[in-house]
C-alpha cells in the first residue's frame, strides 16, 4: 500500500461521507443523480465479488463493505425514504444510463484479462466506473445552482481516481511486471471526464462564487 493509494481510498471514502452528510443533514437529495448512484452500486457489487472468497486484509475487506453498503443505502434513501425521495429531481435526471451499462458490458466481453466470470465482471466494473459520473455531471449542468456539499462530493469523487493513477505509476516503477492497462485507460478517461468540472470548481473557489457549470 503506497501513500497515493491510501490518499485515493481516503478521498473516495470522504466523498461518500460528504454525500451521506448532505442527504442526512439536509434530508434532501436535490442535485444528486440517482442514476449515478445506481451505477456506483453496480460497480461495487460487480467489482467486489471476491469479498467472501479472497481475504487480502482487514482494511481491504472493511473498505469494500463500506463502499457496497453506503452505495446501496444511498440508492435506497433516494428511492424509498419518505422525505428524501420527494426531493429527487426525477425529471432532470434523464440520462439513459442503461446505455452506459450495455456499453461497459460489451467492452468487458471484448477486453478483459481472462475470460472468467470474475475477470469479466471486474473489467465491467472498471469500465462502468469510468462513465458512471456522466448522469451526475449532466444533472449538475441542468440544475442552476449547485449546493456546496454536492460540489464537494463530485470534486472528491474525481480526485480519488487521480490519486489511483499516481498509485499505478508508483507501482509500475517499484514492482516488476505490474501492468494494468485496463484500469490505466479507464482511469484516465474517468479523471478526464472531470476535467471541465475541476476547472469550473476551481473558478468558483477562486472567485468565491457559487459553482455553476455552463449548460
Amino acid at each position: 500500500m503506497n501513500v497515493f493509494r491510501f490518499a485515493g481510498d481516503m478521498t473516495h471514502l470522504f466523498s461518500v461521507l460528504v454525500l451521506l452528510l448532505k442527504i442526512y443533514a439536509t434530508k434532501s437529495c436535490s442535485g444528486i443523480s440517482l442514476k449515478t448512484q445506481e451505477l456506483y452500486a453496480l460497480v461495487f457489487l460487480t467489482r467486489y465479488l471476491d469479498l467472501l472468497t479472497d481475504f487480502i486484509s482487514l482494511y481491504n475487506t472493511v473498505m469494500k463493505l463500506v463502499f457496497i453498503s453506503s452505495s446501496l443505502a444511498i440508492v435506497w434513501c433516494m428511492r424509498a425514504h419518505p422525505v428524501v425521495r420527494r426531493t429527487y429531481d426525477k425529471d432532470q435526471d434523464t440520462f439513459r444510463h442503461y446505455t452506459l451499462v450495455a456499453g461497459s458490458l460489451v467492452l468487458a466481453l471484448l477486453f478483459h484479462d481472462r475470460f472468467t466470470i470474475r475477470e469479466v465482471c471486474w473489467a465491467f466494473s472498471i469500465y462502468l466506473e469510468a462513465v458512471a459520473i456522466l448522469p451526475q455531471l449532466v444533472l449538475l449542468q441542468r440544475s442552476r445552482n449547485v449546493d456546496n456539499l454536492t460540489g464537494q462530493y463530485v470534486f472528491f469523487l474525481g480526485a480519488y481516481r487521480a490519486f489511483y493513477i499516481l498509485n499505478w505509476i508508483y507501482r509500475y516503477f517499484t514492482e516488476q511486471h505490474f501492468s494494468r492497462w485496463i484500469p490505466w485507460i479507464a482511469g484516465l478517461v474517468q479523471t478526464g471526464l472531470y476535467a471541465d468540472f475541476f476547472y469550473y470548481y476551481y473558478l468558483s473557489w477562486k472567485n468565491n462564487v457559487k459553482l455553476q457549470l455552463p449548460a
Binding site: D9, D50, D54, N60, W122, Y164, R180, P183
Partner: peptide, 10 residues
Amino acid sequence: LSAVTKHDEL
C-alpha cells in the same frame, strides 16, 4: 501474477 495480488486494490 496470482489473481489475489492482482485485485488488491479497491
